[in-house]
Amino acid sequence: MIHNNLAGQGVVSDLMKPSLFRIESWKRESPDVFTMSFLPKDGMGGVGENPGFTFLPGQFNMIYIFGLGEVPISISGDPAPGLPLIHTTRSVGAVTQGMSLLRPGAEVGVRGPFGNHWPVERAWDKDLILVAGGIGLAPLRPVIYSVLNSRNKFGKVILLIGSKTPSEMVFRGELRDWDRSKLMEIHLTVDRGSKSWRGSLGVVTKFVPAISFEPENALAMICGPEVMMHFTIDALKKRGMQPEDIYVSMERNMKCAVGYYGHCQYGPHFICKNGPIFPYSEIEGIFREPEV
């Protein structure tokens, strides 16, 4: 039977309604990147209730700022139960610029979590290579928390990070803590140094030939600009990794996050529901195809 598919009514419309969350904390990560934590405005948080936000590493929310609009933002917090929702984002448009001006106490609309997730459990008993470019570390941070929450389940964990400059590197405090913990190997590099920068200069792919891991028993997760992911994939393949063991996070224009508005199509995929995370083997054919 043909239905009356009025999106203005019924379930799809319900999916488009945001819930109210209150900003609990605000932190600047770099000149144009900030991290906020949120708690649901009402309902949750009562005695015996799980007050946090449940999601899987790599998922995203649609964040609505009153009157400005809505944008997809990946979740950058710890996926362990009972913790506040955390987002890290860069001011790049009207909505994120408006959002950057909000401070604790202000309320935003949240829809989500949406999308698939990094295959963290597939990495059990394997070496895990995490490669982040710029703000691409934000969607990978929940993976790092997952790893730290059960470190002995994983083999070697190697985190490679590339950034434009030292001051634009995000989560510097966390990076220091993770490095000190000795629970993972961390390599940082920047495109342009500063007078005080004594770390690596160059692109994040430069570490791939030199790191020590078992390519045939490893999983890689990459998040960053497409061109950076492209060269990283090449470098990992040169080390002997298989395309199905290399995961990337893709980005397209996401409007509804439920596969109904069509904007985020990437070949046969809807980034919002079949992605944003894909094994490279699934998108190999269109990955470097211009304007797909």
Binding site: I2, H3, N4, N5, V12, L15, G259, Y260, K273
Partner: peptide, 25 residues
């Protein structure tokens, strides 16, 4: 109509609630 309906049903499925076949024409 059947093709468009699939789009709607797939989206609705994400909500965990069935698409309500309300007022089929």
């Amino acid at each position: 109509m059947t093709i468009q309906q699939k789009v709607y049903e797939q989206a609705a499925a994400l909500s965990g609630n069935p698409a309500t076949p309300d007022a089929p024409p």
